[in-house]
């Protein structure tokens, strides 16, 4: 990233890097989760679900555009949201591993969405108090959409957890598999600490606490049990992704990579 070299007035230079990091992380999470969800279009278990999940993906693509567009501006090297989405290599992406996990069955996709929503919602609440006005704007717009994402995914997790034996088992399996990945959202790295220190974003521990309380309540209604001894599966924030991620990017970026520099 070229951010370190940006020439800005002394009083803003400090906050530019954390704001860029924050925008990139939020944008990459939204983009990659949207990309995963969008693959269900035409293949979901019921027409109503097909439409609903596409709505979530559409919201997330819109959010990714805003976050990545702002990241590009902060970087100041003329990169657009599309440049950031389609012309970076895997090691440069900053999304958490959770959002890139494969779709699995529809239960796994639902559980992944819920784990992200239940963090995303409280994260955006925190970002509404950011010292950066643009971040506040994007957070406020996104929060309205995400409040509904969370309502819907929570409802599905409770219903499927407390549904049939089979749906219960599938949701418990999905929770066991994904819970360690969700913990990457809670573990602050240096960039997260700089973001919080600059007043750009909330302290991740406080977000984690709210998310955990929310999840516990829903899981008890869902008759599901979160693993207690899960070691965080992390790496995405540092650009160390899963093997599956490379294939996903190859697919997503194929046209821009094959035909560089043209309009679409």
């Amino acid at each position: 990233m070229g951010v370190e070299t940006i020439r800005k007035p002394a009083d803003t230079r400090v906050a530019v890097k954390p704001a860029f990091d924050l925008a990139l992380r939020m944008g990459d999470n939204a983009l990659i989760l949207a990309q995963r969800n969008a693959a269900w279009c035409g293949h979901a278990p019921a027409l109503e679900e097909d439409i609903a999940l596409a709505n979530v993906a559409l919201d997330l693509i819109g959010q990714a555009k805003l976050w990545l567009g702002y990241a590009g501006e902060l970087e100041g090297e003329g990169r657009s949201a599309d440049d950031l989405a389609f012309l970076r290599d895997g090691r440069e992406f900053r999304n958490v591993l959770l959002v890139e996990t494969p779709n699995g069955d529809f239960g796994q996709t639902t559980m992944r969405q819920w784990l992200y929503d239940s963090w995303h919602h409280f994260m955006l609440e925190g970002l509404k108090a950011s010292s950066d006005e643009r971040i506040v704007e994007i957070a406020e717009k996104s929060a309205k959409e995400v409040a509904y994402h969370l309502e819907r995914s929570t409802d599905l997790v409770i219903r499927l957890g407390d549904g049939t034996d089979e749906s219960h088992k599938r949701m418990q399996d999905a929770l066991d598999y994904l819970w360690p990945f969700a913990r990457e959202l809670d573990v602050a790295d240096d960039a997260d600490r700089a973001i919080a220190a600059a007043g750009i974003g909330p302290d991740l521990a406080s977000v984690a606490e709210k998310a955990l309380a929310y999840r516990s309540e829903a899981l008890s209604q869902a008759t599901l049990t979160a693993p207690t001894d899960a070691v965080p599966r992390k790496g995405g924030k540092a650009g160390v992704h899963s093997e599956a991620f490379g294939f996903m990017l190859a697919e997503m970026q194929v046209l821009q990579r094959t035909h560089p520099g043209v309009k679409w």
């Binding site: 278990p45 019921a46 679900e49 069955d105 599905l156 499927l160 549904g163 049939t164 749906s167 219960h168």
Partner: peptide
Amino acid sequence: DGAWFRDGL
């Protein structure tokens, strides 16, 4: 593949 999901709900 979606039968369990519809039935669960």
